[in-house]
Design a protein around this nucleic acid. Structure first.
Length: 922
RNA sequence: GGGCCGGUGGUCUAGGGGUGAUGACGGCGCGCUUACAACGCGCAGAUCGGCGGUUCGAAUCCGCCCCGGCCCA
């Protein structure tokens, strides 16, 4: 295991000269230690520029993935690791298949979030942020950016991601800003970007507008206050008459313009049309009706506050007689304005809430107060409760673009994987709201709009105008706001390739081949990119969206920097190696709680697998040193096991290819894991060991070496996209051609022959070998005991084994027996324990006097009970006339064959149970 | 309020009409057998959330219910 080294995360450590020499002379080190070669290969790939996408002109075959740009706010999390790994896998796979491949890295300036982070950082350092000018703040953010950028790049490299750093893009660099400006201007000229006063989400702490997506509904324990709005008639009011309204936000009361009830609500019928007094004021408000009112909530009456609630605003718009605006809360969240009584002005909203409730209580207007849990929108950035507010902002009209993006997915031009996200996508796109894109912060792309101070006209410009085109005045000022970060992100698939310029890269590498990202940003990013690609290039930006899961911690919370529950990937990589980390991400291993990430458990599993790969290579490698390449031997004449493993490899290669094509990355990893460990290592290697060692002679050794090299070298090629470093390292120790596995050819299943006969024969043999192992354990023999073994074939495949010369030796090796022989019709030897498998009867004679070798064969008895049970079930089925009548003939035949096999097997089992060999032998 | 997803051995998971339910981890037993104890071999452990239906046949399809989780209001 690697020592966790420098806390900051070490840069790739060069291999010591001593170690390098040692490796060359003595083959592979005994221990799998990723620290010894991962950094070496990362530098090698970088030096040779193997991941630099070729510069090609014109459209043509290509494979492009743009990495979802991490935010410059901090360092990468496991979520980025997962994305990077899946995308790198796809890129390495396609690169090996020979496509011009571009894996493009980048960085997002992340507007509001970054400004927040830098502010916090500066405050911690004692800088008075308030005194900094816009330019000074920009400079500070740039410093921050450079620092984070360097670390993020190191993190990505440490994963072994095959990115083309020569094409790195940062969203605030000039050419990207130009793309943002162009997008804004284009939409502005088409009237798709407009300025309007709307109800928006206001963050009173950051004092900026936010889009709907940046508002996080949070379940909050609040209260519901029942407030009596007194009758306008003072006499009645004095008697306590009035109309009771329930509200969660009493502090907005001064902004009320009406009280609304549902028109169908009979309880309130008599009140409709009358006026009540607004508490704590001398103003009256009418009681109106509106369909939107839920009669079951509170008293069934809602106070209408058009400036501070979305629903209320809409109600007010439906009732033209009411004012649709009455601001009583300012941009800092304080009560202000002519409608607020003097004594409350300047109060912060929650303090005001308290004060108002107290005063209502004092005046006897507070009828009751109950606890109430509800969802309150909180700012994703500052986490304070959002204040809905009427404000003039810039919006994107998404109605037409949204429809087009919806159609594109409906038509299958863009496929979403896994498909279940389709419905979520549809649901969202069918209910699109205008997208608020202006932010009242300083960090971000400036809005290219200028206002004339003289004639008040405004317009958008490509370059800053000298004078107002309308009145000629030179007194102009630019819009002080900046654009929502996502307004630059949605251009990512093409702005990174040079758009709006018509670059060679844009022609060649657009559209992106597959967009991989976490399912949490389907709406933020994916939906908008589809809109953007269609709007600006008339082409969907990608044919596939591959959504990865979201990693969670033990409490089921999303891993994030923010919660501090996401370890730095570099720490994991230092401890376990990049390959083990990558494999763990792709091959979900058991964990404690639901979907939770337990590093120890997951990493151990994948590290153990890689150790297996390592040691298997150590077994095969020595015998292969004289081979010039990994071309397969003449397999037609090869030993059974060699033909079998070649055939299994071929199926594995096909399966991996199929699964990768379907984006079943986990499945592909599983298939490789299964093949390498449980076929190649457990069976082939165990059987071929003797030959590989040379003890069986030169010819057999070379044969085994050729097969081993051919299969293992090709398996490493299949493995490379998953675990690039170890595969590259081991590959160089085996016969191979080419300088790097990263650019070696992806193998096709046809490279090794499939052999149905060999597979059937080996399956039968495996049953025999397993049966002998079971018998050996059943007889309480120690693994080092060497009993004598026999088998009597029951099937053609098992009988074919009689013809295989090496089968006896191989069976002995695998089952740990002294000798192995087939019995034709002969009686089983005296004192033998027996078991009946579907393919053969197997017998084991314990060595004389072996400890614990006596005793009943519980295995035989258990097998008998099981088979007898199955047989009666099978017979019951066959006895059922409806089954025979209605089931397809093929199924009936299968069941009949099964009945035959089971009854024969049962007969044999019982025969052996009666036989004397199960008696304690002397 | 609307929408989506899931519930399979102790844990995590595969399988999405054909009857011995996959695998891994953990557990138990035996072993350091010259690739690998970061390992090998064997064993135990699940009426596939509940109820009802369709079918010759249901973990798999349909309906209702219960329990988790996610998203949008």
């Amino acid at each position: 295991m690697r020592e966790p080294s420098t806390p900051e995360g070490s840069a790739p450590r060069p291999l010591s000269e001593e170690r390098r020499r040692a490796e060359v002379t003595s083959g592979l080190p005994k221990r799998y230690d990723p620290a010894c070669f991962e950094p070496k290969w990362q530098s090698f790939w970088e030096e040779k520029q193997l991941f630099r996408a070729p510069e090609l002109d014109g459209a043509g075959p290509h494979w492009t993935i743009v990495f979802p740009p991490p935010n410059v706010t901090g360092v990468l999390t496991f979520g980025h690791s997962l994305q990077g790994t899946t995308e790198d896998l796809l890129c390495r796979w396609q690169r090996m298949k020979g496509l011009p491949t571009l894996f493009l890295p980048g960085l997002d300036h992340a507007g509001v979030a970054t400004q927040m982070a830098v502010r916090k950082d500066l405050e911690k350092k004692g800088v008075n942020v308030g005194t900094l000018s816009r330019e000074e703040l920009h400079a500070r953010i740039e410093e921050w950016r450079h620092e984070k950028e360097r670390y993020i790049r190191r993190q990505l490299t440490a994963h072994g991601l095959s990115m083309d750093w020569s094409r790195y893009v940062y969203t605030m660099e000039p050419r990207y800003s130009e793309a943002v400006r162009t997008a804004f201007l284009t939409l502005y000229r088409e009237g798709l970007v407009y300025r309007a006063e709307r109800m928006i989400n206001w963050d009173p702490k950051l004092r900026t507008a936010l889009s709907d997506l940046e508002v996080i509904p949070t379940e909050t324990q609040g209260k519901l206050w029942y407030i009596r709005y007194p009758d306008t008639d003072p006499a009645r009011a004095a008697r306590g008459e009035g109309f009771v309204v329930a509200t969660t936000r009493p502090e907005t009361i001064f902004g009320d313009v009406a009280v609304a009830v549902n028109p169908k609500d009979e309880r309130h019928g008599p009140w409709v049309g009358r006026k009540v007094l607004l508490p704590l004021t001398d103003r009256g408000v009418p009681i109106i009706t509106d369909e939107a009112i839920d009669p079951t909530f509170g008293t069934g009456a809602l106070k209408v506050t058009p400036s501070h609630d979305r629903v209320d605003h809409e109600i007010a718009l439906r009732h033209p007689e009411l004012p649709s605006k009455r601001d009583t809360i300012d941009d800092r969240g304080r009560l202000e304005g002519e409608f607020v009584p003097e004594r409350f002005r300047g109060m912060e909203r929650f303090a005001a809430r308290k004060a108002i409730v107290e005063e209502l209580r004092g005046q006897g207007l507070l009828v009751k107060e109950e606890l109430h849990v509800h969802n309150v929108g909180h700012s994703e950035r500052s986490e304070v409760p959002i204040e809905p507010r009427l404000s003039t902002q810039w919006f994107v009209d998404t109605s037409k673009m949204g429809l087009r993006a919806l159609e594109s997915v409906r038509k299958g031009e863009v496929r979403i994987i896994p498909e279940r996200w389709l419905k979520t996508y549809y649901n969202f796109m069918e209910n699109l709201e205008p997208w608020c894109i202006s932010r009242q912060v300083v960090w971000g792309h400036e809005i290219p709009v200028w206002y004339c101070d003289l004639c008040k006209a405004h317009d958008a410009f490509e370059v800053p105008p000298k004078a107002c085109p309308k009145c000629g005045s030179e007194a102009l000022h630019q819009d002080p706001d900046v654009l929502d970060t996502w307004f630059s992100s949605w251009l990512w698939p093409f702005a990174t390739l040079g758009w709006p310029k018509r670059t060679g890269d844009l022609a060649r590498y657009y559209p992106v081949s597959v967009l991989g990202t976490g399912s949490d940003i389907v709406f933020f990013w994916v939906a908008r990119m589809i809109m953007g690609g269609l709007q600006f290039l008339d082409t969907p930006p990608f044919p596939y969206v591959y959504l990865t899961g979201i990693l969670t911690d033990r409490q089921g919370r999303k891993l994030s920097k923010h919660l501090g529950n996401s370890p730095d990937p570099i720490e994991i990589i230092q401890q376990w190696g990049a390959d083990a980390f990558r494999f763990a991400l792709l091959f979900p291993l058991p964990v404690e709680d639901g979907g939770a990430w337990d590093p120890q458990k997951m990493m151990e599993g994948s590290r153990n697998f890689l150790t297996k790969v390592w040691n298997l290579t150590r077994l095969v490698e020595p015998a292969t040193s004289s081979l010039a390449d990994s071309s397969p031997p003449h397999l037609e004449e090869a030993p059974l096991m060699d033909r079998w493993i070649a055939s299994r490899w071929s199926h594995t290669a096909q399966e991996v290819e199929d699964r990768l094509s379907r984006f079943d990355l986990t499945g592909a990893a599983g298939v490789l894991h299964q093949f390498l460990w449980h076929e190649l290592a457990d069976w082939w290697a165990e059987a071929a060991k003797e030959r590989l060692s040379g003890r069986a002679g030169k010819g057999p050794q070379e044969q085994a070496a050729r097969t081993g090299a051919a299969v293992l070298e090709r398996t490493l090629r299949l493995l490379h996209p998953f675990v690039p470093h170890i595969s590259e390292e081991l590959w160089t120790h085996l016969p191979h051609t080419g300088e790097s596995l990263a650019v070696a050819a992806w193998p096709s299943a046809a490279e090794l022959p499939s052999d149905v006969g060999a597979e059937a024969t080996v399956s039968a043999w495996m049953e025999i070998a397993r049966g002998l192992r079971t018998l050996k354990a059943d007889a309480h023999l120690s693994p080092s005991a060497r009993p004598v073994a026999f088998a009597r074939p029951r099937t053609a495949a098992a009988a074919a084994l009689l013809q295989v010369p090496e089968v006896a030796a191989v069976t002995c090796a695998v089952a740990g027996a002294a000798s192995f022989q087939f019995l034709a019709g002969d009686a089983p030897p005296e004192g033998a324990r027996a078991l009946v498998t579907p393919s053969a009867e197997v017998f084991l004679v314990p060595p004389a006097g072996a400890a614990g070798s006596s005793g009943e064969s519980s295995a035989l008895r258990k097998e008998r009970d099981l088979v007898s049970d199955l047989l009666s079930k099978t017979r019951a089925r066959l006895a059922d006339a409806t089954f025979r009548g209605k089931a397809p003939p093929k199924v009936v035949q299968e069941v009949e064959a099964k009945e035959k096999e089971l009854s024969e097997r049962l007969r044999l089992l019982e025969e052996h149970l009666r036989a004397p060999e199960t008696e304690p032998s002397a």
